[in-house]
Amino acid sequence: MSNLACVPFKQVATAFALCTALFATGAMANQPQIYGLHEKVSLHELALELPAKLDTGAETASLSAKNIQVFKRDGGEWVRFQLGMKDAEEAQIIEKPLARMSYIKRRADDRKPGDKQLYSARPVIEMDICVGNELKSIEVNLTDRSAFEYPLLIGSSALKEFNAAVSPGVRYSAGQPSCTQTS
């Protein structure tokens, strides 16, 4: 029933009553927000807007970073990095607590012959990401994505947080990011 769309009936009043009943029972209230394959997002705490690729085939979100260093502070592990964007000349240094390490399976074309390391370790941080008017704190792994067109890839875990579905034929459907607080 959750896929049921409100279609025109012979009488508009009947259609309105059916739609109202579906919303009241929650049958349509939990429908995902449809986003495009590419969206403009804001890294809220950095006041930075950038394009992102929404990828249901990736599990985690990945942010382009360079000069990544894990270090100790106040008994905990932290990460220091700079954004690794194509146009960034002197990117600011960002320091965030390390949430965990992620181990990503390497593609065959990402390994040299005889290279036995099948996984790469990537530091993961929590970051506030704004898409449209939705602001969520999500886990983001740090890796050099400077060879890719989109410096941020948003994977399926984060898409679930946003209650999002991706329409591959659509681009920038959420418009400019306009978030005020984390939901």
Rank of each mutant, 00 (worst) to 15 (best):
M1I: 13
M1C: 14
N3C: 09
V7T: 13
P8F: 06
A15P: 03
A17G: 07
C19H: 13
A21L: 15
F23T: 04
A24F: 04
T25W: 04
T25L: 11
G26C: 05
A27W: 06
A29G: 10
P32M: 14
I34Q: 05
E39P: 00
E39F: 04
S42Y: 02
L46C: 10
E49D: 14
E49P: 00
L50Y: 02
P51L: 06
A52M: 03
K53Q: 12
D55R: 08
D55T: 11
E59S: 14
S62P: 06
L63N: 01
K66N: 09
K72P: 10
D74H: 14
E77H: 07
V79H: 05
Q82N: 11
L83K: 05
M85N: 06
D87A: 10
A88N: 07
A88S: 14
A91R: 02
Q92E: 06
K96P: 04
P97A: 14
A99S: 11
A99K: 07
R100M: 03
S102N: 06
Y103C: 00
R106E: 05
R107C: 11
A108R: 14
D109T: 15
D110H: 12
Q117E: 14
Q117I: 09
Q117H: 05
L118H: 03
L118W: 00
Y119D: 00
M127G: 01
C130I: 08
V131K: 03
G132R: 01
L135Q: 02
I138E: 07
E139V: 03
L142T: 04
T143C: 02
D144S: 12
R145E: 01
Y150S: 12
L153A: 04
I154C: 01
G155T: 01
G155C: 08
G155Y: 04
S156M: 04
S157R: 15
S157Y: 06
L159T: 00
K160A: 11
E161S: 12
F162K: 06
V166R: 04
S167H: 12
Y172D: 03
S173G: 07
A174K: 00
A174I: 05
G175W: 03
Q176E: 15
Q176F: 14
C179L: 10
Q181A: 15
